[in-house]
């Protein structure tokens, strides 16, 4: 059997993280850990973020990716993981939210080469 590597979204995200590390980029990984109400991507959905701003995968339907990329770069800078919550009522905190009215919690962690 041939695994559909390029169609396996989970592996694709992890492989990009590894490739970017190999290229000397800083890397962060974002993962949906909890959702309430309607949310575009299920728990476990991941997105890899590179120091140069490239990203692969998704943690929402495109609604919060911009803010998550930013949080990823902060995580790379200070080496600490963070937990973000996005909801439709969160517009004050993040100026982004989920149009679908759901809430998601996203864990953003630096990926260290050591």
């Amino acid at each position: 059997m041939v695994a559909p590597d390029e169609n396996d979204d989970v592996l694709r995200v992890l492989d990009h993280a590894a490739e970017w590390l190999d290229d000397g980029q800083a890397v962060a990984l974002a993962t949906v850990v909890q959702t309430w109400g309607s949310s575009p991507r299920p728990v476990g959905s991941q997105m890899a973020i590179a120091g140069d701003g490239r990203f692969e995968g998704s943690v929402s339907g495109g609604c919060v990716e911009g803010a998550v990329v930013e949080a990823g770069q902060e995580a790379m800078a200070d080496g600490k993981s963070r937990l973000l919550t996005f909801g439709v009522s969160d517009s004050d905190a993040w100026a982004v939210g989920l149009a679908c009215g759901g809430t998601v919690r996203i864990y953003v962690e630096p990926v260290t080469s050591a």
């Binding site: 992890l14 990984l29 990926v111 050591a114």
Partner: peptide
């Protein structure tokens, strides 16, 4: 996440 954990996850997936 440490690189080692990342690589073990990728291997398990493959």
């Amino acid at each position: 996440m440490k690189r080692d954990v990342l690589d073990r996850l990728r291997a398990a997936r493959r």
